[in-house]
Simulated assay, not measured.
Amino acid sequence: MRYRKIRGHRKKWKRIDDWVESNKDLDINYLKTVQRSYCKIWVAPWYSIPITNSAVPQPNGVTKAKMLEGLLTIHDSWKQTLNELGQPYYLKIWLYEPRFFLSQVVCSIGDMQHFYNQTFYKPTINKAFPLVNYGKLADTLANFDWEHCWDEDFLTDSDLGSQDSWGMTTEEFASHKSWFTSELKKTHRLTRINTAYNNQINSYAFKKGDVYIGGIP
């Protein structure tokens, strides 16, 4: 696949600096209200692309390093604020590879403190965190405890739906059903999930990479 070239890196670096500055102060009033918060890498063009759009290259080199430094800065600032609350909290960096642009800082408190514990599938065979891949930031990242999970995309039976539920023509739904069927031919992990209507539907998880969950012990 031919990737679309990302130009204007110095402008991107300025946007990264602006993103860090705008997000390093945790909105404690919002957190107390909803008991959870997160900060994704909101830097153009990556924040605006579909997750499945592999034609846009992942950030790398200096750009990726600056983004990771930004996540660490936000994490450290949030940690200081959370420590001042004087109550237990969840604070982690979710570091995705290779879909790095999905990486984020996540926190929760109170009744939602353990909300994120079941977010990712944890394989029986774990990968060690690849510190060697992070250059000058390796020493800082070594201070975290890292847990290996899978980065997955999901489909459910609801994504198939019916012709009436989607408001499609017969031809449109036939094409949609063909796409859904072809997706299920790919390697996936099948689970059953409960719905709000007290029944169960199939969930199909497609592994896209790894996600490392890191927190300061």
Results as ranks from 00 to 15, higher is better:
141 L>Q: 07
83 N>C: 11
45 P>M: 08
57 P>E: 02
62 V>K: 14
144 F>Q: 05
66 K>Y: 08
20 V>N: 00
182 S>Y: 03
192 R>Q: 14
124 T>K: 14
116 Y>Q: 12
153 D>A: 11
45 P>V: 10
121 Y>L: 12
174 A>Y: 07
185 K>L: 15
211 V>R: 02
208 K>L: 12
124 T>Q: 12
21 E>V: 01
96 Y>A: 03
108 S>T: 07
34 V>H: 06
209 G>I: 09
170 T>K: 15
80 Q>L: 09
36 R>A: 11
72 L>D: 05
203 S>P: 00
109 I>W: 03
58 Q>P: 00
191 T>E: 14
173 F>Q: 02
188 H>R: 11
175 S>C: 10
11 K>F: 05
124 T>H: 09
177 K>M: 10
6 I>S: 11
161 G>I: 01
191 T>C: 06
163 Q>P: 02
28 I>Q: 03
134 Y>F: 15
11 K>Y: 05
194 N>L: 12
10 R>V: 08
26 L>K: 06
77 S>M: 01
162 S>L: 04
114 H>V: 04
168 M>A: 07
47 Y>G: 00
204 Y>E: 04
180 F>P: 03
45 P>Q: 09
140 T>E: 15
213 I>T: 07
120 F>C: 06
43 V>Y: 07
162 S>D: 08
9 H>G: 01
94 W>H: 15
22 S>Q: 12
175 S>P: 00
191 T>M: 06
128 A>S: 13
209 G>E: 10
212 Y>E: 04
52 T>P: 00
78 W>R: 02
88 P>I: 09
170 T>E: 15
201 I>T: 06
30 Y>F: 11
83 N>H: 14
65 A>Q: 13
18 D>F: 11
81 T>R: 10
208 K>N: 14
51 I>H: 10
90 Y>D: 13
104 Q>A: 13
134 Y>P: 10
155 L>P: 09
23 N>V: 02
190 L>F: 14
155 L>Q: 07
39 C>E: 07
46 W>N: 02
61 G>D: 13
120 F>L: 08
